[in-house]
């Protein structure tokens, strides 16, 4: 099917006018694990069609309990596997992939074209690093973070905190541990909270909370 009619039909149920507003927006996603992979797919379905995605991992079987990958993608670079999955929904998506480790030295350069950055790292030190680099180098652009996603249940402990242009989703308390585990439902809620916050910012330029 040709591009324009396909996009019109694909996005027919999205809010009126949203596709136009999202047309040129670029979303950066730092980390393509449980948070990042689910966020990318969700935002694509919401109408975002330009992404910059960075991750240096490959898909493992143990990822499939929560990450947006499939058995036949085990062993692939996560960035390439995620692009493949995005293309299966919208073959016109533009994803710039960086299969590289994000550091304090390259974060700004990797995501410089992004209108907002979604922090989807695993390690708390990387989350802090993203917050410091992004708010220093792009103080006018939003950063949407996930913190406190482990375990299961406790729906109402998950919330969104807005501090200037830094938005934090999660319970901000429960660290990952072998005992807590990581489950698709609870992690998925936080991923969708981040995606939902990003969508509101992209469409309205602000976030309500």
């Amino acid at each position: 099917m040709e591009k324009e009619p396909y996009l019109k039909e694909l996005y027919a149920r999205n809010p009126p006018g949203s596709l136009d507003k999202l047309q040129d927006k670029v979303v950066g996603i730092a980390g393509a694990g449980g948070l990042g992979s689910n966020i990318a797919v969700s935002l694509l379905r919401a109408g975002v069609q330009r992404f910059v995605i960075a991750d240096d991992d490959r898909v493992e079987i143990s990822n499939l309990n929560r990450q947006y990958y499939f058995l036949d993608q085990v062993g692939m670079e996560k960035t390439a596997a995620l692009q493949q999955n995005l293309l299966r929904i919208n073959p016109h998506v533009q994803a710039t992939l960086h299969c590289t480790r994000v550091t304090a030295d390259n974060l700004t350069e990797l995501f410089s074209e992004a209108d907002l950055l979604i922090e989807a790292f695993d390690a708390p030190e990387m989350k802090a690093l993203a917050a410091h680099c992004w708010t220093r180098d792009f103080p006018d652009r939003f950063l949407i973070m996930g913190s406190g996603i482990s375990g299961y249940g406790m729906n109402n402990s998950l919330s969104t905190t807005v501090r200037g242009r830094m938005v934090i989703c999660g319970d901000q308390q429960t660290p990952y541990s072998t005992e807590n585990g990581l489950t698709a439902p609870r992690l998925g809620i936080v991923a969708q909270m981040q995606a939902n916050a990003a969508l509101e910012i992209l469409l309205d330029g602000k976030i309500s909370y």
Binding site: G148, I149, Q172
Partner: peptide
């Protein structure tokens, strides 16, 4: 936001408002 390389040189004034945001792992 105070950058980490300034932690050792940043001191306080009376009535300063400090917010400490702690991140936890998992992603």
């Amino acid at each position: 936001i105070i950058q980490p390389d300034c932690y050792a040189t940043t001191s306080f004034q009376d009535n300063d408002q400090m917010e400490l945001i702690r991140f936890v792992g998992g992603g």
